[in-house]
């Protein structure tokens, strides 16, 4: 729908979404691994150490994921 198109067009971050999405995948894998091993949620610092991504990159990558989720949300609305 127009909503999704506007969304993709308006957001400059879509341009960098490939790396961000790859990072997003790496972050989620790592978070799952930590929470499986520790029996609790992984923190930003722990994820940063294991992925060698900066806190800043993790914040941005998680934003890219939010966007993917929002796109799905608008699709199913």
């Amino acid at each position: 729908s127009g909503e999704i198109k506007r969304f993709l067009r308006d957001d400059g971050m879509v341009k960098v979404s490939r790396t961000l999405k790859e990072n997003g995948w790496k972050i989620k894998q790592t978070a799952e691994k930590i929470s499986y091993e520790q029996g609790r949620e992984a923190t930003l610092e722990e994820i940063s150490k294991l992925t060698e991504l900066s806190i800043e990159d993790i914040v941005m990558a998680m934003e890219a994921n939010v966007e993917v989720e929002s796109i799905y949300k608008s699709v199913y609305q």
Binding site: I27, E41, L44, E45, M62
Partner: peptide
């Protein structure tokens, strides 16, 4: 809030 070292879930 990122320097408070949140979990991904807290951040989201």
């Amino acid at each position: 809030i990122s320097f408070l070292n949140p979990t991904l879930e807290e951040m989201s």
